[in-house]
Amino acid sequence: MAKKIGVLLSGCGVFDGAEIHEAVLTLLFLDRAGASAVCMAPDMDQLHVINHYTQQPSDERRNVLVESARIARGDIQDISTVSADSLDALIVPGGFGAAKNLSDFAVKGPEAQVNPQVRRLLEEMVQRSKPIGAVCIAPATVVRALSQKSPQVTIGSDPGTAAAIESMGGIHCACGVADICVDEKNSIVTTPAYMLGPGIKDVAAGIEKLVNKVLSLCRADSD
């Protein structure tokens, strides 16, 4: 039976939602590996909307679940209806939405709050020893939600973000774009992706490794 891997999206677009390249590469590599992606997002307003052409704020309101549905081709669930019992693993692509909508790390840094449903699902995954993958800036939200577990993650090499992660109780590991950081104790896999870039072929290498490692960590009894 195909593994069911949750893909937690945070909108649609790097500056205010999920990074589209990272999200699509995650879905591609899951499909190539024979896994079944279960896309989800919180049903909430985005922190704000950015015009991706001008990269300036726009006077609009958009819903995270509705925008995420664009990436998922409409096949998406409200995260509040998803439990860890229905998944074998969970992967969180990056983009500013991971730090603006799934949490407010982009605004509050180490004092951030995580969306309650996102926190619930992350805690459930760890409690059930089910693997979590996080891409780009998403590890910051994972660390904030799971700080009591002292997760080891990477966001690449940015000193400020690494320091914020450590101040939240995480352990930061410097990592190249084509590589992954594996927290064996907590079954958390991370990769820098566009925190380092520079291009889609570069981030693809690390995301493919992350997807394959997450799948390898899925429990045999979930087959």
Results as ranks from 00 to 15, higher is better:
A112Q: 02
P139D: 06
H21L: 10
A140F: 00
G34P: 09
M195G: 02
E60I: 03
T161V: 15
S222Q: 15
V49Y: 04
D45G: 05
G169F: 09
H52I: 04
S129I: 00
S167G: 14
I207D: 10
V64L: 08
V143M: 02
M125C: 01
T154F: 10
A99F: 04
A106Y: 13
I180R: 14
S83G: 09
L9N: 03
V114E: 08
A72P: 01
G95A: 14
S129H: 07
G169L: 08
D31I: 01
Q152V: 01
I188A: 05
M40Q: 15
Q152H: 03
D104T: 04
S80L: 08
P192W: 15
D223S: 12
L65I: 06
V107F: 05
S36G: 08
I188W: 06
I180Q: 13
D85R: 14
H48Q: 11
V126P: 04
R73G: 04
E19P: 00
I91E: 02
I79K: 04
A89W: 07
Q46D: 03
N115G: 00
V114Y: 05
G6A: 01
Q148P: 00
A99T: 11
L146F: 02
C218R: 10
E67Y: 08
A98Q: 05
L25N: 10
P57Y: 01
C12A: 09
R73L: 08
G170E: 09
V7I: 06
A178K: 11
R128M: 15
G11P: 14
A204K: 11
G17F: 08
H48A: 11
G95T: 10
K213F: 01
G94I: 15
G160T: 12
N186Y: 15
P139N: 04
T81A: 11
V135Y: 04
P116I: 03
V64I: 10
I165E: 08
V177G: 14
A89K: 13
K149C: 07
Q127G: 15
V214K: 11
E123F: 02
K4I: 07
I200G: 13
Q77C: 06
C39P: 10
L121Y: 06
K185H: 07
K201N: 05
D223F: 13
V135C: 08
T141W: 03
V126E: 11
D202W: 06
H52Q: 11
I20A: 06
A204P: 12
V211E: 06
G197E: 06
G6S: 07
P192I: 13
L215D: 14
F15M: 05
L27G: 12
F96Q: 00
K100H: 09
C39E: 14
G11I: 06
E123A: 14
